[in-house]
């Protein structure tokens, strides 16, 4: 039986690559140290594979079709939106696990859109580069939730998908050790007149929900509250809900938090416990 042995929530902020000096040296060091600490924790957990839960930013999926949730079942390549220092390249894929989750989903009410030769954006590419790539031999499954382009995946559905992922991993016939990563920024406004506003109060509320494993509080966050208090970018916390559910909402601890206006984002990092 495959086992989920750990979970994390992290940002995936491309601005830290395009405008590295937008943060103070201290903040930048804290952010990169948090990623490095999480890469180390993944090594300590002896993980074989990571399920990275990201979201499209109108980069991968266009107006022709906007899928609510997608999983990689074959090769992965990215990020298609290359960043300074992170070039588009093949990402070692765990196609079998992705295919298994998709197959289980078709039997249990989760009709995944599948990516057979899937391209991903920075929401997968950044955590992969900073957390998975340093751990030689690890593979990844890419999951994309509709968090950046409406119609947004309902928060409750993101939670259900996390629970489904947990059940599907447990039914996998291998003995691999799996970590899940919810990839998204907390408060940030992308492209609108409020871009640059960061809301530490909202960010700490979200991190509190995550580290308490508070399902009810997470599901009580309305889109209106998220958009008003956290911004359109904060809709990405659906990835946190999914990761929380995949680890059975056992709580966790904040690893780092930096509100960085120059990087237009509340950058929160937490490690999730896994329920026994």
């Amino acid at each position: 039986m495959a086992t989920i042995v750990g979970g994390f929530v992290v940002p995936h902020n491309p601005v830290m690559y395009f405008n590295p000096k937008g943060a103070s040296a201290e903040q930048s060091a804290a952010v990169y140290a948090a990623y490095a600490r999480m890469a180390e924790r993944i090594r300590e957990l002896r993980a074989d594979t990571a399920i990275i839960i990201g979201c499209d930013h109108y980069i991968l999926f266009g107006t022709e079709a906007l899928p609510p949730y997608v999983i990689s079942t074959g090769e992965i390549e990215g990020p298609v939106d290359q960043l300074p220092g992170i070039k588009r390249a093949p990402i070692a894929s765990n196609a079998a696990l992705g295919a298994h989750i998709a197959a289980v989903g078709r039997q249990t009410g989760f009709d995944w859109t599948v990516g057979r030769a899937m391209q991903v954006d920075h929401s997968i590419g950044i955590p992969h580069h900073l957390m998975i790539k340093p751990n030689a031999g690890m593979t990844s499954v890419a999951v994309m939730l509709a968090c950046g382009v409406d119609p947004y995946l309902p928060m409750a559905r993101a939670w259900q998908i996390g629970e489904h992922i947990a059940a599907a991993v447990e039914s996998d016939g291998t003995d691999q050790r799996v970590v899940v990563i919810g990839s998204g920024g907390i408060s940030h406004h992308v492209g609108n007149e409020r871009m640059g506003e960061v809301n530490p109060t909202f960010d700490r509320k979200v991190l509190g929900i995550v580290t308490r494993g508070d399902r009810e509080a997470m599901l009580a966050l309305t889109d209106e509250e998220i958009l008003q208090e956290g911004g359109n970018g904060a809709m990405e916390i659906r990835t946190y809900a999914c990761a929380m559910a995949a680890t059975r909402a056992a709580g966790g601890e904040v690893v780092a938090y930096e509100p960085i206006e120059g990087w237009v984002t509340g950058m929160g990092f937490a490690e999730l416990k896994v329920a026994a």
């Binding site: 930013h57 109108y58 950046g148 382009v149 409406d150 992308v190 492209g191 609108n192 007149e193 871009m195 640059g196 359109n232």
Partner: peptide, 20 residues
């Protein structure tokens, strides 16, 4: 979607400060 309007502006090489 403002992710698109922002990207549209930047792909033309226009300054972010003007966009804001």
């Amino acid at each position: 979607n403002t992710m698109l309007t922002w990207g549209f502006w930047l792909q033309a090489g226009k300054p972010n400060s003007d966009y804001m």
